[in-house]
């Protein structure tokens, strides 16, 4: 059953799955971008800058579980949908995004572990990831999200517009295919 689901998500439903995945990624980005705007442009104190949803529901920002959940969804999405990227360029960029997200997920796993065990690493007063030993959390997450998102979106672009020489693309995500239905006849 899982194999069938995997095949469907990377075949007939790859486009739909990517749209849903992108919607989740953009919703998450909206929160982080708003938070950065609140701090860097509007001059809000960092603890008060919680994005839009976090402004009304602070637990969304303070909950390590929610952050870990998103990191896990990202990792799973990048892993599960990778098989649908059958070209050279699109698969290479998607794999880069997956690799970076794997490390990002490990960082969140460490944070979540400290929260669950009630024991923080390095004698810190709050759960701390490895990179957080040096880099403040807001900037670190802006960085992580950027370096995962950019290869991911480049992969999606190459997937939507594969090189003409590659022949007729197999995936419905490819715009060439939609624009030239006669080719499939």
């Amino acid at each position: 059953m899982l194999k069938t689901l995997h095949e469907t998500l990377n075949g007939a439903r790859h486009e739909t799955a990517l749209r849903v995945f992108m919607a989740i990624v953009l919703a998450h980005w909206a929160e982080h971008l708003l938070q950065a705007l609140q701090i860097y442009v509007l001059g809000w104190p960092v603890p008060q800058a919680r994005g839009a949803l976090g402004y009304f529901f602070p637990v969304l920002v303070s909950s390590e579980l929610l952050h870990y959940g998103y990191a896990l969804v990202m990792l799973a999405g990048l892993w599960v949908l990778r098989a649908g990227f059958t070209g050279v360029d699109d698969r290479r960029w998607w794999t880069i995004a997956l690799s970076i997200q794997f490390f990002h997920h490990v960082e969140h796993f460490l944070l979540q572990g400290q929260y669950l065990l009630g024991q923080n690493l390095f004698g810190r007063p709050v759960p701390t990831s490895i990179a957080q030993l040096w880099v403040p959390r807001v900037e670190l997450h802006l960085f992580y999200n950027t370096i995962v998102f950019i290869p991911m979106v480049i992969a999606m672009y190459f997937h939507m517009f594969p090189p003409a020489k590659a022949g007729r693309p197999a995936c419905t995500c490819a715009w060439h295919r939609r624009l030239s239905p006669a080719v499939s006849a």
């Binding site: 880099v135 900037e139 960085f143 370096i147």
Partner: peptide, 15 residues
């Protein structure tokens, strides 16, 4: 440290 990662993010964007 912040500027290092922000610069890396900017470079990733340019790439």
């Amino acid at each position: 440290a912040s500027r290092t990662v922000l610069a890396l993010g900017i470079m990733t964007g340019l790439v």
